[in-house]
Computed example of a mutant assay.
Amino acid sequence: MRDEVDGLVEAWGKERPDLDVQPLSVLSRISRLARHLDRARRAVFAAHALEPWEFDVLTALRRAGDPYELSPGRLLRATLVTSGTMTNRIDRLAAAGLVERHPDPADKRGVLVRLTGAGLTRVDAAFADLLHREHAILDVMSGTDRETLAGLLRTLLVPFDSGD
């Protein structure tokens, strides 16, 4: 079985035999796969009238558990965006009827962002469809291979997530 990366690696190996192009065989595949996954995810989100950033905010609230609310500060940490960006996102989601702002009973100056019924319904449907699509993508691999791949990818990802 060959893919486009095999040709890329071979071509670079011939053109630049002085360089070890082996990292391309792994990282180019990860990069190409990321683009394909992004397209697949965007298609699922679009089917539910959601942008990727909307899905990120709504799923952060959904994962918080009932009553599906977080402070804007916790939301921005969960989604890795700036305060101004989060404020804009909350405004847009509230205008769409997917979230509401409520006073924070523990902090008179604070607010909490909560999923509305419509937001909960939409994010649950989008998440279920996303998982269905991702299962279909992974169906070419055995369960053991999936676990092995997940572990190997974790090894590569941990240094980035830990800030090293």
Rank of each mutant, 00 (worst) to 15 (best):
E69W: 08
Y68R: 06
V21M: 14
L157V: 04
L37D: 11
D18P: 00
R35N: 10
K108A: 15
R154W: 01
T87Y: 11
R133C: 00
D38R: 14
G117R: 08
D3G: 15
D91P: 02
R146W: 08
L157Q: 07
R32L: 15
D124E: 15
V44P: 02
L37T: 06
T87V: 11
G110A: 08
A64P: 01
V140Y: 11
I90Y: 02
R42N: 08
P103Q: 07
W12H: 11
G143Q: 11
L112N: 05
D124R: 14
L152E: 07
H36L: 15
T155G: 02
D161S: 06
H102I: 00
R2L: 13
L152F: 01
L130C: 02
H102P: 00
V81M: 08
T87I: 11
W12D: 02
V113I: 13
L156M: 07
R154N: 00
L61K: 06
N88I: 10
L70Y: 02
L8T: 11
R154S: 05
G73D: 09
A150G: 00
R114P: 05
A49R: 14
V21A: 13
F127C: 02
G84N: 14
G73R: 08
F127S: 12
P72Y: 08
L58R: 07
L130T: 01
S25L: 10
A60M: 03
G110E: 04
S31F: 14
R16P: 01
I90Q: 05
S71V: 02
D107T: 09
L19S: 03
S28M: 15
P52A: 09
R29C: 09
T85R: 13
L131Y: 06
D38P: 01
L98D: 04
L120Q: 09
D129P: 02
R42H: 07
R39H: 10
L131P: 04
D124Q: 13
R122F: 01
L138Q: 10
R101Q: 14
A136Y: 03
L130F: 10
L37R: 13
D6Q: 12
L50Q: 04
H132M: 07
G163D: 04
G143D: 14
L61E: 05
